[in-house]
Amino acid sequence: MGLEVTREAADAMLAAARAAHPNEACGILLGAGERIEAFSQTANVHDRPARRFEIDPQALIDAHRTARSGGPQIVGYFHSHPVGPAEPSSTDRAEAASDGRVWAICGEGELAFFRAVEGGFETLSSTIIDG
C-alpha cells in the first residue's frame, strides 16, 4: 500500500518550498505509522540556508513533547531543494540518521518520499489522500 499523505500536508510542503525559495524550507511530518496527516513548517536555522537545512531544535523538542502527551507522532522530516531534483543529495545521504524515519523532499516542483535506512535511503511509494 505504501505511505499515505493527506492532500493538506502535501500542499503545505509544496507551498513552504515555494515561499522559502531561494533557501531550503524544512519541517516536521506528523501522523502515525505509514500516514502523514500534517506538516509543521519550522525555521531553517542553518547558517547557509540556500544550500543546507537544519530544523529548529526547539521545534523538534516541542514536537516530541506533544507526541509524548498523546499528540501526533513524528513520522519524519521535510526539506526542499531549491535547485535540484526531489531526491536525497549526497549531503542528505552522508548526514541522515538510519532511523527509519520518512524524509519528504521537494525539488523542481515535485514531492517525493524516502525512508532513512542503513546505508542511505529507500524510495517510498506514496498516495495523496483526502484527509
Rank of each mutant, 00 (worst) to 15 (best):
D92Q: 09
A38R: 11
I129E: 15
A94W: 03
M1R: 10
A20F: 08
I128A: 12
D56L: 09
F114E: 06
V102Y: 04
R18M: 15
E95C: 14
S125Y: 07
A32M: 09
A12H: 06
H21T: 14
L111C: 04
G70R: 06
D99K: 15
N23T: 13
M1S: 15
Q73L: 03
S40M: 13
F121I: 10
C106I: 12
A116W: 04
A63G: 01
E24D: 03
S69G: 11
F114I: 08
E4G: 12
D47F: 12
P85V: 08
S80I: 06
A12Q: 07
G119Q: 06
H81L: 10
A9H: 02
L30Q: 04
S89A: 10
A25Q: 02
A17W: 04
I28K: 02
A104Q: 04
N23R: 06
A96Q: 14
S89Q: 04
L14C: 10
T127C: 08
P49R: 01
E122I: 14
F113L: 04
D92K: 06
D92G: 02
F53W: 05
L29S: 01
V83H: 12
R48Y: 14
V5A: 04
S40V: 11
G2R: 14
P22H: 00
S90P: 05
D130H: 08
R48K: 15
L30M: 07
L29P: 00
E4F: 13
A38E: 08
R65H: 06
A12I: 12
A86W: 06
L14T: 08
D92A: 07
A50L: 08
